[in-house]
Design a protein around this nucleic acid. Structure first.
Length: 698
RNA sequence: GGGUGCGUAGCUCAGCGGGAGAGCAUCGCCUUCACACGGCGGGGGUCACAGGUUCAAUCCCUGUCGCACCCACCA
């Protein structure tokens, strides 16, 4: 006898173990059926399950179970990501707590430490996915730093390099001074900050005039190489071409005319610091200006590059700046300018300042040598693939977002000054000639050929952006570069399900790499799911304390209740609101279903081996069977079209409204006994219950 | 500055050219032998606002306001 209240905790774990043990989730290339592939967005290996995962993984699980039930050879490829920056940060913090640090223990020991951390924490997320009831083929689990996947990374790096699509260049990059690494544009987050606008007077040489520039970062004035004014600006027209004298260093540089200057902003005259500002860098290129760096990798003042040009009278002050943090230097410089009467005024000013999304540090644009990927070249076929419909987004409106970014894509900075990640397969000869090869031996051979004799090579210190290996996920997990049966069978995948927050980070780059390496798209449909918010629609964050823990919800209400909630809420690409109240109402549905099954059991409604639905005679039977068919058709249609909430609601309506409230209530009086009618009703009840269970299985 | 999405019952949302809907909440009744995590019944909306197209507009167009998010050069 079933208990009247369903206790999910007692069943879900046991049932899952049986499923997994019996290989119910395993894809089987030797099966004859048509494959159906979903690549899991690999979660951070040391992460834990949050509501966003709960949503996206549930939706994928619904789709994969649906196709599996249809007899397709369904592969849901699981795995985890090494998450370079995030993981390294966590381990570094742990080291700091122990009173040591990453530089102190050295690269090798540090990497050992991260692997150890991974070994300890690595199982958490996959355990939690199991608790959610997700059904990927665990026997094929991969990790982005597995030997196989690492080989894929090296192979593609070499290929892209040989094709001229990866190159090393000295460019202005987003620099995280706290983490001391370059970041890609995507890892930068603009935040509004209250600051000041300092108006600084620069004397114009050979006149008694000054020109006033406004800046939010006075410390960068040390690296100025020009003042720019708009060519049409009447106020400054006569000053164009004249020379200004930097008040602190005494360096001389021209006043140039450039469209970049906006007469409306500040004073209309802007100081140009090519080495520390992206716009200024562009201006510098147009006017052939030098671009001396005055901040080092920790964002501390370094005057090496300009020292020779400075006037000796201020060397005491300049010496005092050397090595100062940028903010300390800012204060000193402002004070100095005020002392010499060159500070016109200070205006409070709110502006958006770039921050590193992980460390939170203020980004300092820095001129450094980095590895870049020519994304524009790779983007061209990737744009075409969406234009001509080989890839379709659901909902379609996301295609515009994709296009907008892809059509204006900037070179992708792929090197990171981290230790945890795929080390760049590049070696340098004694004269800094670069040898890119899959292995050190290959590099040495190339070098020997180049120099005519064996030489010692030094390997590049940097590692690759985490997203570089993620971009290869759709084929690297299937064994590429080897020509495996899996690769032939499961590539390209069918649908990718993910949040729109990583459309550029991941989706776009998978398309680029898939087309470049495989000559075909990595998936045909991209289903975008929304972000999960709290019950009032607010973003969840630890500081607000409104984070909902999916595991707590599972404990209280059961995995099915949570899964049903997120599926029913997941309207096409829109954000979903999630809180205990909603899961609670789903739990009621689960209980309702449980009790319907219990009712059938109590009343002896068991599947009749000889029963055929077409033989049903009673109007009630025929009606419910017909309704069940319609519900099944509706559910299937909704799932085919990726309208998962419609699917969930159709099942809900039929189960509760039609089956429980009408059919079971009306059938009650006639269920008992051995009449033909009673036998038919019992068989129909069992039949329809079976349909419902199958429909709701996903 | 550019762009996207959303504003429909107290809440969450569906509908998207001709009857304003669902679930939850609420109210009333039901101490019924599957389920009170239940059953039956009821109340509740000038479909953000202003114009326009149409025989007809919540639905199409234009504009306004409000909310959210994305992109963008930190003067």
């Amino acid at each position: 006898m079933l208990d009247k209240n369903f206790d999910p905790a007692a069943f879900e774990g046991r049932l899952y173990e049986t499923w997994e043990r019996e290989g119910a989730f395993a894809a089987d290339p030797s099966r004859g059926s048509v494959p159906f592939t979903i690549m899991i967005p690999p979660p951070n290996v040391t992460g834990s399950l949050h509501v966003g995962h709960a949503l996206t993984m549930t939706l994928q699980d619904v789709l994969i179970r649906f196709r599996r039930m249809q007899g397709r050879d369904a592969l849901w490829q699981p795995g985890t990501d090494h998450a370079g920056i995030a993981t390294q940060l966590m381990v570094e913090r742990e080291l700091l707590r122990e009173g040591t640090s990453r530089p102190a223990i050295g690269r090798e020991a540090f990497l050992d430490r991260v692997w150890k951390w991974k070994a300890e924490q690595g199982g958490t997320i996959t355990r939690q996915l199991r608790r959610l009831g997700a059904s990927p083929d665990w026997s094929r689990e991969r990790f982005t730093m597995d030997e196989g996947l690492s080989r894929a990374v090296r192979t593609i790096f070499v290929r892209l390099f040989n094709d001229g699509l990866i190159y090393r260049a000295k460019r202005l990059v987003n620099w995280d001074p706290e983490f001391r690494s370059a970041l890609s544009d995507l890892e930068v987050e603009m935040r509004e900050v209250k600051g000041n606008l300092w108006y600084l007077r620069y004397p114009v040489e050979g006149t008694d005039r000054t020109i006033t520039v406004a800046t939010t970062r006075p410390e960068t004035m040390l690296g100025d190489t020009a003042v720019a004014v708009h060519p049409e600006d009447e106020r400054y027209r006569d000053l164009i071409g004249k020379t200004v004298i930097q008040p602190i260093t005494g360096r001389r540089f021209p006043i140039v005319a450039d469209e970049h200057s906006d007469p409306e902003k500040g004073t209309g005259a802007v100081k140009i610091t090519p080495a520390h500002d992206f716009n200024d860098f562009a201006v510098g290129q147009r006017h052939n200006l030098a671009s001396p760096s005055v901040l080092d990798r920790s964002a501390c003042v370094t005057l090496g590059e300009i020292r020779g040009e400075c006037q000796p009278e201020n060397s005491a002050f300049l010496d005092s700046l050397e090595g100062l943090d940028r903010l300390a230097a800012r204060a000193e410089i402002v004070a100095y300018m005020e002392r010499i009467g060159a500070l016109e005024r200070i205006e409070p000013h709110t502006h958006t300042v770039p921050h590193a999304d992980r460390s939170g540090a203020v980004i300092e644009p820095l001129l450094t040598e980095q590895w870049f990927c020519n994304a524009a070249e790779l983007a061209r076929p990737a744009i075409a693939a969406v234009e001509d419909g080989r890839i379709e987004f659901v909902p379609k409106s996301w295609e515009n977002t994709y296009f907008a970014w892809m059509r204006n894509i900037e070179p992708w900075c792929i090197s990171r000054q981290l230790w945890w990640g795929h080390r760049i397969p590049a070696w340098y000869g004694p004269d800094r000639t670069i040898f890119v090869a899959e292995t050190e031996d290959d590099a040495k051979r190339e070098a020997e050929e180049h120099y005519g004799h064996p030489v010692d090579l030094v390997r590049d210190e940097d590692v690759l952006d985490t997203w570089f290996s993620s971009a290869l996920w759709p084929f690297s997990t299937l064994g590429w570069p080897d020509n495996t049966p899996e690769l032939a069978r499961y590539y390209p995948g069918d649908v990718l399900v993910t949040g729109f927050d990583i459309i550029f980070f991941w989706v776009a780059r998978m398309v680029m790499m898939g087309l470049y390496v495989m000559g075909d798209v990595p998936f045909r449909t991209v289903m975008m799911n929304g972000l999960v918010r709290d019950e009032r629609g607010q973003k969840m964050s630890k500081t607000k304390g409104n984070v909902v823990d999916p595991l707590a919800l599972i404990e209280s209400y059961g995995a099915d209740a949570l899964r049903y909630t997120v599926t029913a809420q997941s309207g096409a690409g829109r954000n979903i609101k999630l809180g205990p109240a909603m899961v609670e109402s789903s739990r009621s549905f689960v209980t309702k279903l449980w009790n319907a099954a219990r009712f059938c059991e109590i009343n002896g409604c068991r599947p009749e081996p000889g029963f055929r639905p077409a033989d049903a005679k009673l109007p009630l039977s025929r009606w419910i069977l017909d309704a069940a068919n319609r519900c099944a058709a509706e559910a299937t249609e909704a799932l085919d079209a990726y309208r998962l909430s419609d699917y969930a609601l159709a099942c809900y309506r039929f189960t509760w409204g039609d089956f429980c409230d009408w059919f079971l209530e009306l059938a009650k009086p006639g269920l008992a006994g051995e009449t033909n009618e009673a036998r038919e009703l019992r068989a129909v009840a069992a039949e329809v219950l079976g349909t419902i269970l199958r429909l709701l299985h996903p």
